[in-house]
Amino acid sequence: MSVLDALQETLAGEHAALYTYGVLGARTSQAATPDLYDALTAGYRRHRARRDRLRVLVEEAGGVPVAAAAAYELDGPLLRAAQVEAAAVTIEESSTEALLALVAQSVGPVREWALTEATWSATWQLELGGEARTWPGAPELG
């Protein structure tokens, strides 16, 4: 896998993350669960900025940024707050894994950016009801 491949795979994952965060936000009541709504909003904004940055990085690496799909399949009904939280944690777990793959393939500023974003995604899982792990993004080491 080249750094361009890793950038494209991370970007593809961010497209899916943004779509899912949008669905989760739409199914969350700002009045009934304000903390969850705020966490989802912050997550959406972070992933939107990450997607935009990845598009630039792909172009700088000589590639054409992979496009988003029209829709993505979601697991489960996602109607209860606990289900929404669990889905959001899954988004961040997947992002952490993809970003760690990018860390392995990159050097310099790209690796530093990927490390910062991976650390954010791992830590944000706690805001969404997740738990601290021993090997976030690299569970096979456990």
């Binding site: 952490t96 970003l99 760690l100 793959a101 860390v103 392995a104 690796r111 990927a114 490390l115 991976a118 650390t119 995604s121 791992a122 830590t123 899982q125 706690l126 601290a132 792990r133 021993t134 090997w135 976030p136 993004g137 690299a138 080491l141």
Partner: peptide, 14 residues
């Protein structure tokens, strides 16, 4: 680098 990134992420979580 990937292993140490996971260590950093775990430490940040904890």
């Amino acid at each position: 680098a990937r292993v140490l990134a996971s260590v950093a992420a775990s430490t940040s979580q904890h």
